[in-house]
């Protein structure tokens, strides 16, 4: 599913090159639930941006579902983001002016689908996540947990190859966080591949496999 080889990524700080990700090798199989655990500043967000095709590596190879992501131009990466990756953000990243339903179906509309077909395709997921009674509400009218469910529904709407979650419980209270993690486990059990980035070991422990990233190196991992 995901195969990353010798990946390096850094930024120029003035005239000095600052390496962030150092020679990373990473592999995720279909149906896995992997947590990438790392402290603040370890490079985990940069790593997520690269996995999510929002940023490109300086060197190395990245294959997603057999596609050579590291060789693709921006237009193709846009298409990959739309079709292969479902993003779940820490602060939900819902568009405040749209309703819950409009937020959820947005990835399908971007594929050229009409509003009604997109709505029909998403309805099962919406019911599964228990937000079908909130479809006409604006994000500001929802609780944190509900917002994250909407975010998950949006990520799943396009039936992507992987769900990529960045600190999905970071903005939630303990109970809502637990609910979301339980939901992830259920989705994984249904066959969805999930890569979750977190700084919290307890959150990471809900995944089947944990990788640790420290100082830009994905140096050790443990199989649970």
């Amino acid at each position: 599913m995901i195969d990353i080889k010798n990946l390096n990524k850094g930024y120029m700080l003035g005239e000095e090159y600052l390496p962030i990700l150092k020679n990373i090798n990473f592999h995720v199989d279909e149906g896995e639930f992997v947590a990438i655990l790392g402290p603040s500043g370890s490079g985990k967000t940069t790593f997520m941006n690269v996995i999510g095709c929002m940023d490109i590596s300086d060197s190395g190879e990245y294959y997603l579902d057999g596609l050579s992501i590291h060789e693709m131009p921006e237009e193709q990466l846009t298409e990959i983001r739309n079709k292969e990756i479902g993003f779940i953000f820490q602060n939900y990243q819902l568009i405040s002016t749209y309703t819950v339903l409009q937020n959820i179906i947005m990835p399908l509309l971007m594929r050229g689908m009409d509003h009604r077909s997109a709505e029909e395709q998403c309805m099962e997921t919406i019911k599964l996540l228990g937000i079908d009674h909130r479809l006409d509400h604006k994000p500001s009218e929802l609780s944190g947990g509900q917002k994250q469910r909407v975010s998950i529904a949006r990520a799943m709407a396009g039936n992507p190859a992987i769900l990529l979650a960045d600190e999905p419980t970071g903005a939630l209270d303990t109970n809502s966080g637990k609910e979301v993690l339980k939901l992830f486990q259920e989705l994984n059990a249904m066959g969805h591949t999930i890569v979750m980035i977190t700084h919290d070991l307890k959150v990471a422990q809900s995944a089947k496999r944990i990788c640790k990233i420290v100082d830009g190196r994905l140096s050790e991992y443990s199989v649970r």
Binding site: E75, R81, T97, M106, P107
Partner: peptide
Amino acid sequence: NEIGILKALGCKQSD
């Protein structure tokens, strides 16, 4: 931020 969300979700530049 809205534009960023749309781009993250795979909205084309042309759209």
